[in-house]
Nucleic acid binder design. Structure first.
Length: 425
RNA sequence: GGAUGGGUGGCCGAGUGGACUAAGGCGGCAGUCUUGAAAACUGCUGUGCGGGAAACUGCACCGGGGGUUCGAAUCCCUCCCCAUCCGCCA
């Protein structure tokens, strides 16, 4: 959420930003309601003040008659307060719904545009696109020939979009996680494995919508829990309601979780194989920072993503995400898109966002400077280290050989324990 | 899943309807004393929102939400969490 006062004082730029982001929300209505809310709040507080005064005087009343008379007065005040409060609650509810639908402001350098067509390519990774002297296969064919993924089995057990990893693919998945942790731990990230379920209020605080027709979230029946779509949810929820000392910042976490997505409405579009699935494993980076340090932290997270994929020897490009493609919470977002020879195009493999204080405000996460009065909302950032299924696609397709085998990227060899994945005889 | 006991400020902890304006302690800050430090002593020390140039002041907050009452940390309902025991289990 944005600060209410900020919206009122900067209504025009908030409106302009909503246009850039393609979000239809009545900012004028918000400003109007906020003014009403403030006035009604003042009325209720005044009535409370009077009621408090009356209540106190009853305890000190001299005789029963006076007491009864004051009680009657208190009762009357309470009724009056309740009426005003009901009005206030109605206004506050409408205000809150509007408030939640207003997206974060956008970084001045974020490219302005309606969708990913307007994304700006910034630079390429260190690894050039591989030149094959044979027709490269896509990861589905490669996986089948090498017996690495069982899509049919996944479909029988859990439905389309689920799969079993098999044989060296299992080692590859673990190796990718281990490799990511190795790099991130050296950079001061605390490694964590996180719950795969979270409370809906946490999902909402991060910016996910757990229910409704548009939801991408699996929810657990008869509970207020949902399967997480990313460890961003659990790592960001970790400090919900907490106030941390400023000198503990930045807090850098990396979490391994399973990620579950219903991918409602995504059928027919790039659904082949591992690219868009209902479950995958991901190592996620998450950072809590001081406000003035979040821009630099976003660059840091992006650089780490580049390092991870340069290290893997996967060709990629870095993209500055357009305003219309940022989603609600992000102030700025960079994506890495890996070259996928089987698809013959780039596909998104990581995404890192600076959410400034947008999530922190919703989740009520603050910091306090020692010796100073008051607390402030801190900034939150997230970034994919390795999303296994898509990283695996990039590795399989870029490292495929004429003989059908897959060369294991050098950095993964200590963890996979072999240099090459070949068909079992 | 069942039973019992709990959740109070940065921390510990007292508080079962009206002086709670939350005792006391620890920690922190400032001061006195001291060459300096420690100790001792004295004072101050929560958060959010609003009003005010400021001093100051109003409202809310004792796990979350709701209720009873003129008045709730305290009573009732509900949810969450923690501890211990039982059951089940990797």
């Amino acid at each position: 959420m944005l600060d209410r006062k900020f919206i009122v004082e900067n209504a025009e730029s908030v409106k302009q930003n909503c246009v850039h982001r393609g979000v239809a929300v009545d900012v004028d209505r918000f400003v109007e309601l906020e003014a009403r809310r403030k006035a009604m709040q003042a009325e209720v507080e005044e009535l409370n003040r009077q009621a408090n005064q009356v209540s106190k005087s009853i305890g000190q009343a001299k005789d029963q008659a006076e007491r009864d008379q004051r009680k009657e007065e208190g009762r009357r005040l309470r009724e009056q307060t309740n009426e005003h409060r009901a009005e206030l609650d109605a206004v506050a509810a409408e205000l809150d719904a509007l408030h939640r639908s207003i997206p974060n402001m956008s970084h001045p350098d974020a490219p302005i545009g309606a969708d990913d067509q307007a994304n700006l390519e910034l630079f390429l990774g260190k690894t050039p696109q591989p030149q094959f002297d044979f027709q490269p296969l896509d990861h589905v064919d490669l996986a089948e020939k090498l017996d690495l993924v069982d899509f049919d089995g996944g479909a029988r057990v859990a439905g389309h979009g689920f799969y079993f990893l098999r044989n060296d693919m299992v080692l590859l998945e673990l190796a990718l996680q281990r490799y990511a942790l190795e790099v991130l731990m050296a950079e001061g990230f605390t490694p964590m494995t996180t719950p795969d379920l979270a409370r809906n209020e946490i999902l909402e605080g991060i910016g996910f919508i757990p229910r409704g027709p548009e939801t991408q979230i699996y929810s657990i029946d008869n509970t207020d829990l949902s399967l997480v779509a990313t460890a961003e949810i659990t790592l960001g929820g970790l400090y919900a309601g907490q106030t941390v000392d400023a000198d503990e910042l930045p807090i850098k976490l990396c979490g391994i979780s399973h990620c579950f997505r219903t991918e409602a409405g995504a059928h027919g579009r790039a659904t082949r194989g591992l690219y868009r699935v209902h479950q995958f494993t991901k190592v996620e980076m998450f950072a809590y920072t001081l406000p003035e340090e979040s821009d630099a932290m976003l660059d840091h997270l992006r650089d780490l993503e580049c390092r991870l994929f340069d290290g893997l020897g996967v060709p990629y490009r870095v993209v500055d995400t357009a305003t219309g493609d940022l989603g609600g919470p992000a102030y700025r977002k960079f994506d890495l898109e890996a070259w996928m020879p089987g698809r013959g195009e780039y596909g998104e493999i990581t995404s890192t966002s600076n959410c400034t204080d947008y999530q922190a405000r919703r989740l009520n996460i603050r910091y306090k400077v020692k010796g100073e009065k008051g607390t402030q909302f801190l900034h939150t950032l997230n970034g994919t280290a390795i999303a296994i299924s898509r990283a695996a696609i990039a590795v399989l397709e870029n490292y495929q050989q004429a003989d059908g085998s897959i060369v294991v990227p050098e950095v993964l060899r200590p963890f996979v324990g072999k240099e090459r994945i070949v068909a079992a005889k």
